[in-house]
Amino acid sequence: MFFPCETILLRTAAPIEIIDVTATVRTAFQESGVVQGQVTLFSPHTTAFVCLNEKEHMLQRDMLDFLHRLVPADSDFRHNRDPVDGRLNAHSHLLGLFMNASETIPVADGQLLLGGWQSIFFIELDGPRDERRLLMQIIGEQ
């Protein structure tokens, strides 16, 4: 059974931000009543992504530091010389080369099969933004 695609709306507050959406996804999933199937999350943005990783405060700070060091925003990128939307965001697009626009989580016995340390994160690379969207599609049997 296919369920309507749901939209999770997010507001971001920092240039690069890691937002835990696990509880939101889990609540929407539980309301579906699916016991076997999968949940797919998709970011329809070119500078914001979704990933599974560990939620631990110091690790998240390490992740932010790593992303800032990996592709410095103040580098001379051709994309920033004449930006289409006025945003100097070439670094955000380049960081996105290492991330996923979607994640699929299996479901069994009415539970999301996340690992013991896994959380679901929305990763903003070009914030702050007043509105970002994370699409969620649930497929399965009730």
Rank of each mutant, 00 (worst) to 15 (best):
R87V: 03
D130Y: 07
T12D: 11
R69Y: 11
P128M: 02
T24Q: 11
E131L: 12
T24E: 11
G110M: 01
Q30F: 01
H79Y: 03
R132W: 01
L10S: 02
E141W: 06
I120Q: 10
T46Q: 05
V35A: 13
A101S: 14
A108D: 03
L41G: 14
M136L: 12
S43W: 04
N100C: 12
E124P: 01
D62M: 09
E17H: 11
L9E: 09
E124N: 01
D82G: 12
V35T: 15
G110N: 04
L64M: 03
E31L: 04
L9W: 05
P83H: 12
E6K: 15
L70Q: 04
G33R: 13
R11H: 14
W117S: 03
R81H: 06
W117Q: 02
L134F: 08
Q38P: 14
N80D: 14
E31D: 07
F2N: 04
F66C: 13
L70M: 14
Q30M: 00
V34F: 09
H45S: 13
S32N: 09
T12Y: 10
D109Q: 08
F77N: 02
S43K: 10
G127S: 02
D62N: 15
W117M: 01
M1G: 08
P4W: 12
H57S: 05
S43M: 01
